[in-house]
């Protein structure tokens, strides 16, 4: 019984059938399918195999106290949620994408190496580029491109999730704060030494 509060709930072994992306060819109203996607009404897809419109109220009362009238619906699942495919397929594409993204990050570190004490410009740029790309990708996926189902976990969760990193920031902050020598400020390391002379 899916929780109406949280339609993104995944069982341990999700049935790929009901979560299949609405086929634009067979669907009678592709616009409503897109609206359902946009409003995040995954419950209509996950819970009901017959693609009921998203506006259909849930027949069961909310178990843990109904949502307030003004409160919007729960967050739509927008990252790494498989529309179809088995769990193993999704895990495989996430692993492959993560390996690809991490390799690109490692390659960026080789191309533009930064000193251990210097400001990590490469990590900053990797994260900014990755965030920009995921924003572009998700909007394209939502607005323009009916991508194959495994594309989103591959690109968003795998490649871009593996490309960007949070732990490097945290660990670098510790290293920078724990070094006894006073390291130069970021703007000093940005310019080339010859330019500053």
């Amino acid at each position: 019984m899916p929780d109406p509060h949280h339609p993104t709930t995944d069982g341990p072994d999700p049935d790929p059938g009901p979560e299949r992306t609405p086929d634009p060819g067979s669907g009678s109203d592709p616009g409503s399918a897109r609206d359902a996607l946009r409003s995040g009404a995954a419950g209509a897809r996950a819970g009901a195999p017959d693609t009921q419109p998203a506006a259909k109220p849930h027949p069961q009362a909310a178990p843990h106290g109904a949502r307030a009238a003004g409160e919007p619906a729960p967050l739509p699942p927008f990252l790494g949620r498989p529309r179809t495919g088995t769990r193993w397929q999704v895990l495989a594409v996430v692993a492959a994408g993560g390996a690809l993204g991490a390799s690109a990050r490692y390659g960026a570190g080789l191309l533009w190496p930064t000193e251990p004490d210097a400001f990590p410009w490469t990590t900053l740029c990797v994260n900014v580029v990755g965030c920009a790309l995921i924003g572009i990708f998700l909007v394209v996926l939502q607005e323009a491109w009916q991508a194959p189902p495994l594309v989103r976990p591959f690109v968003a969760t795998g490649v871009l999730g593996g490309f960007t990193t949070f732990s490097t920031y945290a660990a670098w902050t510790w290293s920078a704060s724990s070094t006894t020598a006073r390291s130069p400020p970021p703007w000093a390391t940005w310019r080339s030494p010859r330019w500053r002379r």
Binding site: I134, G161, S167, T168
Partner: peptide
């Protein structure tokens, strides 16, 4: 670089 870098993410966090 491999495990922790790919385990953590910035893009999903910002999104």
């Amino acid at each position: 670089t491999g495990l922790c870098g790919a385990l953590t993410t910035y893009s999903t966090f910002s999104c």
